[in-house]
Amino acid sequence: MSEAAKHMNDEVAIQINGMHKWYGEFHVLRDINLSVHRGEKIVVCGPSGSGKSTMIRCINRLEEHQQGQIIVDGIELTNDVKKVDEIRREVGMVFQHFNLFPHLTVLENCTLAPIWVRKTPKEEAEATAMKFLERVKIPEQALKYPGQLSGGQQQRVAIARSLCMNPRIMLFDEPTSALDPEMISEVLDTMISLAEEGMTMVCVTHEMGFAKTVADRVIFMDQGEIIEEAPPEEFFDNPQSERTKLFLSQILHNG
């Protein structure tokens, strides 16, 4: 059991039941079943094209699913735009390519959504933003533009930007795979400290060290299916399926 597991409780944060998704004719996700408890940290891994991004993007409906059920924070995702917006307010997302808003300063990136979505007064939003920028250790960059920061700094701003909305769940889609090696650890450290505070997290990542220290469960996907799901010790030491073994041997060789 990891240190962070003490935050876990029985309340279900994300529930996915028999979910399928197609891109046109292409059956990209098949019968996905997953439940994430509040405070739980899930790491999703698997070969390229296996549908990891598609799956976590379904959780905040950046992608639509066609069959099955996704329930986030007790709200079922449907075509109801109001409910979708409600869920997106509570679910933060960090992208592989940061997706900061280049025409706004770091501070404005962080205050934009609180001001416009949560209607927080500007001063209050700025104070909160500075608090989170301090947490990700870049308060001195607040007035710069994203284009003036390094990749690692940009990704930390992106994390702070999500945190400013006070999300109850955070989704990470390969947050370190666009970064140079020396910047990866600064982003991982931020994520680890977030995990220690009890945030519910679903992370797509191939950082196996991170998975071992932080994850409560590791999920392995291949060809649109969840193949294996286990606590990290079991997953790494004693993988059950052949595909998992193959994947692990490849990733541990190269990494």
């Binding site: 905040n60 997106r88 933060g92 934009l112 930007r161 999500s162």
Partner: peptide
């Protein structure tokens, strides 16, 4: 514009017009 800009905006809960 890269698609990611709209996705980031959506993921923060901003509506279409915002």
């Amino acid at each position: 514009l890269p698609k990611g800009q709209m996705e980031a905006a959506k993921s923060l809960g901003l509506g279409y017009w915002q």
